[in-house]
Design a protein around this nucleic acid. Structure first.
Length: 788
DNA sequence: CATCACCCAATTTTT
DNA sequence: TTGGGTGATG
């Protein structure tokens, strides 16, 4: 391998395949706004190159300049394939690239967002920029028929769909869902798929009964998907690998088509993704990968930073560029965050020349409500200093942590946007309506049909459905084919038969309308099926919201159609542009992060995972506690390392300020639970960080912080002997010297560390340490309670 | 066959 | 606290 950034042979070979396409070469511009390392990465034209880029080191900038440079030096734009981690990143990258090469993206076609990948496919003048999954989906849309038994109009099953398939399969195999929870089975299946293990191999490898059965589930699950002409997220990647491996002509074409590859966030690629990159690039060698091992946070999804090592072995002679200068954050943030990560690949120490800022702040609060209040007042202070809401982000480990904060935001009227969580397209009503369209247009998509066969209720109960399914199975046809056959519909009787007839008519009508505008199709599906009426009467309270969501769906569909309308004329061999297919594909592949527009006047809330690649002036990370970060389900040493990197990612999202919060108590499902500050605090004590004592609630002693701290050391949770006090129980009335009377609403812990929650008549709800608080019992439970 | 009431279990991160 | 699953009733 050569020294930093300089190709071994020094002279770029001509890597531009000759295919007679128009040459859009422009004179390469000087790039004064890049530093030396960045420039090296940008002008390295042919051959493999590895860019190790720390947070805030201008990686996206390098990528976009690099793409522009390739185009300027004669590479036809459409030959450039850039893979990003989210659709939104793809859209952003496309936008910025177009700006570099002098095209105004807004003028050209307005919005792209999650359609970016599609655009590249459709327009020769644009680079293809998309996620691996979108890229594969488009690719399969063109080629999947080469693999038995798939057809081009395959559907993509999301997590909810997958779970239902596993449910069916469990029935088929007569396994019970308590010993084989679908969730767990699916995670095994996904793990196998990511390791590219077939069901047969999984079975051969199984040593316990449980493993053997799970492998059987895997096999039946896969068979079921194939029967339904459906693929899951992992299949998108795996089938692409298979196609490239098994069909030399396809591989050949793909290699020629994608002559230059750039892959971002390489630390989070999994095995099949790596193989796709290798298959495409091993001949022309024009592969540029960028990433940061210190930001690898998706190993649980099969991603492996080992792909860096594999790349280094399998693409010998690659150039290496380190981007270590951070342009984003204050020295305080950089030095605190840097203590969390070793920095792989040796010398790479992140540094910044930015001016000093404030210290990273660690603050204890008494519980999740106090945490929420703290966040609100913090935001108020920042707003006062002129920070815009969209420059503030709340980043948490678990989606569930958003709830308390949201409640407080609502109370105090803080505008916010939660990214992720319960995804829009997973909502029941949205899935139901889409299922109507799927069932109407995809005869083999039995999952969709089953979903709506009795929704709204039309007399097709469990018994009738079973009988009908048996009849279909006997004939060896899918349920979708069966319902289109009058003879088969007659295998059930009475109300059920009538119901099936009705549904068949509805589906036929929808099928008929296949070419109508998507919003109309959606409206039809909602109306004709009786779904709207069903919502109105059986779910009156939520009906309005659900109908609004359906409208929202129609709007999204309209947008897809709109964009298709602006598309340049189709080129030969291009995947289908049928709006329904394109839309369903988009629905399946949008990521949570894609919804982050950043433009709205709102505080952003999202998981630490979803925050990857984003940046904000001010960042708050609540819940920095043991069992949360690091999460309790991850106690292997490698897992702890990943949790550490997760915190690293979180802190380095901040430009100016990072505030880490931890609560002494946190209410879980059943009641309050004492919390211990994250052990990661031990690792980040030192320069640039300030630990603040608890200041928000009466009655709580100072909290414990490990390592270097300003706390005075009193330990509110001593493990010493105690005497149980039987009187302080839920419902008992107490009188507090300062807070007056209140009733105990919850207790936890024992002895000296016993905590009680008290609803005071005049001071609201407080958490008290029973042994410290100046209080006495005035009445046992079930004496008069005060209102509410 | 549909509806309702009750009980229990679940909680990581996501394309 | 929620959602899903079960069982009794109409």
């Amino acid at each position: 391998m050569s020294e930093d950034g300089v190709p071994k042979d020094g002279v770029p070979k001509d890597g531009v395949p000759k295919d007679g396409l128009p040459d859009r070469a422009l004179p390469p511009r000087p790039r004064p706004d890049l530093n030396e390392s960045q420039k090296r990465a940008v002008i390295h034209r042919d051959g493999p190159i590895l860019v190790i880029a720390g947070p805030g080191s201008g990686k996206t900038r390098v990528m976009t300049h690099r793409i522009a440079h390739l185009i300027e030096t004669g590479v036809p734009a459409h030959q450039i394939l850039a893979i990003t981690f989210t659709n939104k990143a793809a859209g952003e990258m496309l936008r910025r690239t177009l700006l570099h090469i002098g095209i105004d993206p807004d003028l050209e076609e307005g919005r792209y967002g999650s359609h970016a990948g599609m655009w590249g496919e459709m327009d020769q003048a644009r680079p293809v920029i998309s996620t691996f999954h979108s890229f594969c989906a488009r690719f399969l849309r063109r080629e999947i028929y080469r693999l038995e038994p798939y057809a081009l109009d395959y559907t993509i099953y999301d997590t909810v769909d997958q779970r239902e398939v596993v449910g069916d399969v469990l029935g088929q195999l007569s396994l019970d869902r308590t010993s084989f929870p679908p969730r767990a089975a699916l995670s095994s299946i996904s793990r196998w798929k990511n390791k590219m293990v077939s069901p047969a191999e999984a079975a051969a490898d199984a040593h316990t009964f449980h493993d053997r059965e799970t492998a059987r589930i895997f096999g039946a699950y896969q068979a079921e998907l194939e029967a339904r002409n459906a693929v899951d997220f992992d299949d998108l990647l795996l089938l692409t690998v298979r196609l490239l491996r098994e069909c030399p002509d396809v591989l050949e074409r793909a290699r020629r088509r994608h002559g230059y590859l750039l892959i971002d966030e390489f630390q989070d690629t999994n095995r099949p993704q790596y193989l796709i990159a290798r298959l495409l690039a091993e001949e022309h060698q024009n592969l540029c990968i960028t990433g940061d091992p210190d930001q690898s946070i998706y190993s649980w999804r099969g991603a492996s930073a080992e792909n860096f090592l594999r790349f280094r072995e399998e693409f010998p002679g690659h150039a290496v560029v380190h981007l270590s200068q951070n342009y984003r954050s204050t020295p305080q943030i950089i030095s605190v965050a840097s203590r969390l990560t070793g920095g792989e690949f040796g010398e790479r120490a992140l540094f910044t020349e930015n001016p000093d800022g404030e210290n990273v702040l660690v603050r204890q609060v008494s519980d999740e409500r106090a945490e929420a209040r703290e966040i609100v007042s913090q935001i108020a202070a920042w707003r006062h200093d002129g920070t815009e809401p969209n420059e503030i982000a709340i980043l948490y480990r678990l989606n569930s942590l958003s709830r308390a904060i949201e409640e407080e935001f609502v109370r105090q009227r803080v505008p916010y946007a939660v990214i992720g969580g319960t995804a829009f397209y997973q909502r029941r009503e949205v899935k139901d309506v889409l299922a109507y369209l799927r069932a109407a247009h995809f005869v083999r998509d039995d999952l969709a049909l089953r979903r709506i066969i009795n929704t709204p209720a039309r007399g097709v109960g469990k018994v009738s459905l079973e009988r009908f399914e048996d009849a279909a199975r006997d004939r060896g046809i899918t349920l979708g084919e069966a319902i289109r056959d009058a003879e088969l519909r007659a295998t059930v009787r009475g109300k059920a038969k009538k119901g099936l007839e009705e549904l068949a008519a509805t589906l036929a009508a929808l099928e008929e309308g296949r070419t109508r505008p998507l919003p109309d199709q959606i409206a039809d599906a909602t109306e004709r099926s009786g779904y709207r009426a069903h919502l109105r009467q059986s779910e009156a309270e939520t009906a309005d919201e659900r109908l609004r969501n359906i409208e929202e769906l129609a709007t999204a569909a309209a947008e897809t159609e709109e964009i298709l309308k602006f598309a340049p004329p189709p080129t030969e061999g291009e995947p289908s542009r049928e709006p329904l297919l394109v839309f369903l594909e988009r629905v399946a592949l949008v990521a949570d992060a894609d919804f982050h527009t950043g433009r709205e006047d709102r505080v952003s809330m999202m998981t630490l995972h979803a925050a990857k690649g984003l940046e904000f002036d001010r960042v708050v990370i609540p819940g920095v506690e043991e069992t949360l970060i690091p999460h309790s389900r991850r106690d292997e040493p490698e897992d702890t390392d990943e949790e550490r990197r997760l915190l690293f990612v979180g802190i380095t999202r901040a430009r100016q300020t990072a505030v880490l919060l931890h609560a002494a108590w946190r209410r879980r499902y059943q009641g309050p639970e004492p919390r211990i500050p994250s052990s990661f605090f031990d690792e980040i004590v030192g320069d640039g960080i300030t630990f603040e004592p608890l200041a928000d609630t009466f009655g709580d002693g100072p909290g414990r912080i490990r390592g270097n701290t300003v706390y005075d050391g009193a330990d509110p949770f001593p493990a010493e002997a105690y005497e149980e006090d039987d009187e302080l129980i839920t419902g008992a009335w107490i009188e507090h010297d300062l807070l007056g009377r209140g009733v105990i609403t919850a207790t936890s812990g024992l002895g000296n560390s016993k905590r009680i929650s008290v609803q005071f008549v005049e001071h609201g709800s407080k958490q008290l340490v029973a042994s410290y608080a100046p209080l006495r019992i005035i009445a046992p439970p079930d004496d008069v309670l005060f209102g509410e």
